[in-house]
Write a protein that binds this DNA or RNA. Structure first.
Lengths: 180, 180
DNA sequence: CGACTAACGCAAACCATTAGCTTTTATGGC
DNA sequence: GCCATAAAAGCTAATGGTTTGCGTTAGTCG
């Protein structure tokens, strides 16, 4: 039986905000579970029992942080919509903080559930943009194709080759996807 | 000053083989630095001082493991070369063991050096295949394009969406890259 | 051959982690 | 509205991974 309400929810919220505050204040080096627990007004054993590990806790917080809080902006045109979204995506993910969040999300994720969630967020955003284009009577590419040709290259470079990433590159990916 | 020869090299080799043996025997769960140190005939403090962390040590070993030990096979045709290479890449990386290595390589990698090395391995392999095609008088795509359209989608799915990955998908990526 | 110093061994101290048990408090039935 | 139940948190002690300081070994260079 699961207990989503009451004390459990309060503890979860307190721990999450404690992690975010400590990440912002002192950074990630030297961050420990007892530290988080004290800030959250909770005993360390509680954190260990619910999350099992500092990495899993960080992964949870990271996924929450990587969830887009707003629908992609509408510029009235598929290419502009996609370009704007890709540039914003790159901005958020390629910053040092963003890369740390992405890595954390991948890291403490035994079953791959959090990683899948991150991917689903991006797919959802893309789907919104593409559906918009279809409503305008256009024939945009499918979500899978957009994931392969825009999101995947961006994420690959963010993780493996963080040099030479800029808005122009994101724009080229979109242009290549849509055809010249 | 760095001291690549003599005792240091012996210690490095002993620790690396100890890690590989223990990974093969008991798996990764419950693997600890003292365990590795004992197997390697070394004190734990030595490992901590040189690698700083179990994750960084695992990252080092993983990168060494992910380095291709042979040039891509030559089938006399660009499309067949690329397809075969992509399928082999997927085979190695998408297996549970392969995914674990990739994650380890990304994980304990503060400066991104190990991740960059992994990417360079793939680029090198691709470059060999593409150069071969040029020597045959063909006009193959550039390495960057091949990375974006084959390696990146494969790796993205390996990390974020491990379902529905098979040789056919790798073949489609190559076909899309080369044009129908 | 001898001085220098990076790297290792050793051992003690520290602290994150785990485990067993008790207490609190959502939750559902009467 | 009240009680029974059990999930989740608090508490404490014990384990063992991690850090640290210091003495020793052994590459490296003059």
């Amino acid at each position: 039986m699961v207990r989503p309400g009451g004390r459990s929810a309060r503890v979860q919220a307190a721990v999450h905000t404690a992690v975010r505050e400590l990440l912002a204040e002192t950074g990630r080096d030297g961050l420990t579970v007892p530290m988080v627990a004290q800030r959250a007004g909770v005993t360390p054993s509680t954190v260990y029992r619910r999350w099992g590990d500092l990495q899993e806790l960080l992964s949870d917080v990271a996924v929450e942080r990587l969830r887009p809080d707003t629908a992609p902006s509408d510029h009235g045109d598929l290419r502009r919509d996609l370009t704007a979204w890709a540039e914003q995506f790159l901005d958020e993910m390629a910053s040092p903080a963003g890369r740390a969040y992405v890595r954390d999300a991948l890291l403490g994720d035994p079953d791959g559930g959090n990683a899948g969630r991150c991917s689903a967020y991006a797919a959802e955003q893309l789907d919104t943009v593409l559906a918009r284009a279809r409503e305008r009577g256009q024939r945009p590419p499918g979500v899978e194709e957009a994931m392969d040709r825009v999101v995947a290259p961006l994420m690959y470079r963010i993780l493996f080759r963080p040099d030479g990433l800029d808005a122009a590159y994101a724009g080229r990916l979109v242009a290549d996807l849509l055809g010249t």
